[in-house]
Structure formats: C-alpha cells, structure tokens
Design a protein around this nucleic acid. Structure first.
Lengths: 140, 140
DNA sequence: AAGAGTAAGTTACAAAAAGTAACCATATGA
DNA sequence: TCATATGGTTACTTTTTGTAACTTACTCTT
C-alpha cells in the first residue's frame, strides 16, 4: 500500500520534471501560455458548454443556455466568443427570421472534450468522497 | 480521416450518455455535486497549487506562494483551506518560532493530480495551436 | 537595547468579474 | 394589435479578486 503510493509519487515527479523543463509556472501569466490557455478552457462555464456540445454535437444559443443550467446570456455569449476564438467551437449563422445560430465543436475542440471527459468522470466517481471529507472537516 | 473523427464522436456520445444517466448538469449547482466539487478542484489557482504540491510533495506557505506565481496571500490561504476541507491536501503546523506550516497532498489528492496532469500535458502540447487560432481569429 | 527580519497569515479598501433584468430588431401567428 | 421567438447587448448591482498594509511573537544584528 505504502509502496504503491510511493511509486505513484515517483512517476509523477518525473512527469512534472519533464514538463517543467518546458513550461515554467513561475513565469507571470502573460509569459506562460499554458496558464493563459488553460484558464479559458477549464473555466467552469466553458467546461459545461464544451461537454454539452460534445453530447449534442450541434446546439443553438437558447438550447445551450437551457442545458448549461444557470448561465446568463451575458456570460454564455462571452464564453462562446472566446471558445470560438481559441478554436474549440465554430459558430454558424443562418439568414432566417428570427436568426438561427448553430454552435458545434471543431475537431480540435473534440479532442479537448475527450480529455475533459476523463476528468469529469473522475469527478463523478469521487465527488461523494469529497463531500464526505467536507462534512468531516466541518465538524472539526 | 473523416471516419476517425466520426468514430470519436460516437464513442464520446456513448460515454456522455452513460454519464448523464447519473448526473444531470441541468440541475442547479446545489443539486449537482459534481459541478460543485469540480468548481473547487479545477479552479485556476487550485490547479497550480496542486500541481506544485505534486512536484515538491511538501511545501510551506511562502514557498508555495513563490511557485504559484502571482497568487496573493489572501487567495492562497482561501484555496488552501478549501482544498484541505475537500481532502486533497493536508496541513501540518509545528510549534516553532516563527511558526512552520507544511502543506502536502493526501493520497486522494495525489490521484487527482495524476488526472490533472494529463489535462495539463494536453494543454502544454496544444497551447501553440490555440494561440495560433486566437491570432487568426483576431484578423477576421 | 532598538530595530529589522521572519513565517503564516488577516484585514480594509479598490478593481474586476459575474449575475440580473430590461431592451433591441424583425417577423410570424393569434 | 399584441404577444412570441431568436440571439444577443446594455446598464446596473452584487460577488469575487487583487493590493498592500498590518499582526504576533521570537530571533538576529548593530
């Protein structure tokens, strides 16, 4: 049991070492593109938007708003813009009345959502543990 | 090429379908523990704190502040508290003068950091693509 | 002995981000 | 004629962050 954890730690340190040879998190954000890019993509609302687009493939503004429960028009439209700018999603507007606008993942966005999904599955599996920890902590 | 992407989409839809049978993101946050738990753990600062703790195993407040470049005392102490409450990290205070406080990952936190690291590696590999997209988008 | 330094924060105040709700154009259906 | 629908935007409020000074208590320097 102990050694398993120790091995994990060792593998981990090696991974991070390798990584930190390239990226230095000590750099200010404007000098560390990874921090910058990550802060957009793994933002709470962006995550939900991307997951739902991964699920439905194509969604219009108001549908998206329904599924990404609790998001406001303002923030939804902001996030859609930056997600488009960063290349995760594409926006297509049709000349109809009223206007129809469709959002969908790009192939690039699709690869990101696959990664994101793994993390979300971890969260799904482990959130009971976290909630239990929280409760225990509250009692101390 | 096309079919590869199509296959990915299919696998994806199945994964999400399976998942959404259990969790409904349409629920308000207070009814969806996954959203709640995720918003703490995948917050930008929390992510950096956890990654650095994964790297060094043990860090004291001021060292952590140095590595998690740009974080303020206030936010660092807030995040450390919730990360401790959620069970990702543990805090040990020594009765010395001046006080010494050591933060480290719990085994639970360690498993999360492994997941987080995968995502970060994707970010590292793909951030140039994102920056290129951003620039292209700016020109439109 | 006075003053600076140190560690791990806290606190008051300012700035930025997010949430809220009303509003826009335009056309269709009741 | 008035309500409805779409895909947002805008002004205003509230919440969250960031900034910088301060705290406690002991030690080291001068």
């Amino acid at each position: 049991m102990e050694t398993v954890v120790e091995n994990q730690k060792f593998r981990m340190a090696r991974k991070l070492e390798k990584m930190f040879g390239h990226i230095d998190y000590r750099n200010p954000p404007e000098l560390c593109p990874v921090r910058d890019v990550m802060s957009v993509a793994s933002d709470q609302w962006s995550t939900l938007i991307l997951l739902w687009l991964g699920y439905f493939h194509v969604l219009r503004f108001n549908k998206l708003k329904k599924y990404v429960y609790g998001i406001s028009n303002k923030v939804l439209s902001q996030r859609l813009k930056v997600l488009e700018a960063d290349g995760y999603i594409s926006r297509e507007a049709f000349n109809e009345v009223p206007v129809r606008v469709e959002y969908s993942l790009t192939d690039f966005g699709q690869t990101y959502v696959e990664k994101l999904l793994e993390l979300t599955e971890w969260m799904q599996a482990n959130s009971p543990k976290v909630l239990a920890n929280r409760e225990k902590y509250g009692l101390l």
